[in-house]
């Protein structure tokens, strides 16, 4: 026994739908007026915009102040004592997705690590900021300065002297060797915010 809907003649359904559509749609005169009104409002809007002041900021004459954390050219910062922050740990070079950072680590006579040479290839850099995130000493940072176009691609290779700046970038107060590391004469437990080492022999249950 077929169900009721299935034997219901299809043309009757169509007829009903058509009558419903006719009842719902506005009369043709009304739709003409509505269409014309819609068109005219469009034309009025464009003509009004013709006399509005353009919102364009022409670039070389007008330079918008970019947010501090805009990611563009890379710099190497110094700590408050004026020393290079970079300890040549290779983390930035390891995390770089386009392999644009290369360096050679070296050790000073006082035991502090630094980069013998440090090179960023801005022809490859995609300004992702991963190096900045990976850096444990806040040495490598990205700046909002983005106008670095060069006529020759080789001039986009920045050496350490091109990258080094005389300030601390986003955090001037931070000094990595005050927080960690024993090579610079601060003993275990004497660093900022560090607990004394636990004597494991006294830690009896």
């Amino acid at each position: 026994m077929p169900r009721n809907e299935q034997i219901y003649p299809i043309f009757l359904i169509r007829l009903q739908l058509e009558t419903i559509n006719k009842m719902q749609s506005p009369s043709s005169y009304q739709s003409i007026f509505e269409g014309a009104y819609g068109l005219l409002t469009g034309f009025a809007t464009t003509i009004r915009h013709l006399f509005r002041k353009p919102i364009t900021e022409p670039y070389p004459e007008f330079k918008r102040r970019l947010p501090e954390r805009t990611r563009a050219t890379i710099i190497l910062t110094r700590d408050p004592d004026g020393e290079e922050r970079c300890v040549a740990c290779y983390l930035c070079s390891g995390v770089c997705p386009v392999n644009c950072i290369s360096m050679q680590s070296a050790e000073r006579s006082d035991g502090r690590r630094h980069a013998a040479w440090f090179r960023v290839n801005f022809a490859r850099c995609i300004f992702c900021g991963f190096c900045e995130e990976a850096c444990p000493t806040l040495a490598i940072q990205l700046t909002p300065h983005f106008e670095t176009c060069q006529p020759d691609i080789l001039r986009l290779l920045y050496e350490k002297e091109d990258l080094l700046v005389n300030h601390g970038g986003k955090n001037n107060a931070y000094n990595f060797y005050r927080h960690a590391g024993v090579a610079m004469g601060i003993d275990k437990g004497d660093h900022l915010g560090e607990d004394r080492p636990v004597d494991v022999r006294s830690l009896m249950p």
Binding site: H49, L50, R52, P54, P58
Partner: peptide, 13 residues
């Protein structure tokens, strides 16, 4: 120029 001004841009300048 006119299209640019209708879209509140400046256009070729």
């Amino acid at each position: 120029k006119l299209l640019a001004r209708m879209q509140i841009r400046i256009g070729p300048n």
